[in-house]
């Protein structure tokens, strides 16, 4: 049962990811954004299969909720009609496909030759309690946590400054 779900979610993730970058039917950025939401939701399904329940919830809340809403707001702010009129550059597409195929081949070959195998027998469950214990009780991640909060503050101030009409 879990294997079937894995293949289902993996296929859905890759299909929607492909439709984000190269949708043959529509060049509209809104379509890309909607397929990105689908990709993220099916990836949350993969996280659940990996027993990372907290991260699955955070993935949906932060990515599908906050980040994608931000994207859609910006798409509505900008006038992107012109995007649909322009064609793909042929040499760009060919070169991109070639380099990406090379990278993908390299990655798969590395995986194949390193023989990672199936890994250990899984034990931990990434629910909220165990993640919180790992984050706060050992003291290893306390400083990064505080730095991240500072980073969010800096980002907030920076965004407010950047989106003001006239910088003084």
């Amino acid at each position: 049962m879990q294997d079937i779900l894995f293949y289902l979610f993996a296929a859905l993730t890759l299909l929607c990811g492909f439709l984000v970058v190269a949708n043959p039917f529509s060049r509209n950025p809104v379509t890309s954004a909607m397929f990105l939401v689908l990709t993220i939701v099916s990836m949350a399904g993969l996280f659940v299969l990996l027993h990372a329940f907290f991260l699955a919830a955070v993935q949906i809340l932060v990515y599908a909720g906050a980040v994608m809403v931000l994207f859609l707001f910006v798409i509505m702010l900008l006038d992107l009609k012109e995007e649909q009129r322009r064609r793909y550059k042929l040499y760009g597409a060919v070169l991109g496909l070639a380099s990406v195929a090379g990278l993908g081949w390299l990655l798969v070959k590395t995986l194949w030759q390193s023989g990672v195998g199936a890994g250990l027998q899984p034990g931990y469950v990434g629910d909220t309690k165990s993640l919180g214990m790992a984050l706060f009780s050992r003291g290893e991640f306390l400083l990064p946590f505080e730095i991240v909060s500072l980073l969010l503050l800096v980002a907030m101030v920076g965004v407010i400054l950047l989106s003001k009409k006239d910088l003084k």
Partner: peptide, 12 residues
Amino acid sequence: SLGLLGVIMRRN
């Protein structure tokens, strides 16, 4: 790889 393809190929 798909993400990289998008970065290289798309113009928006």
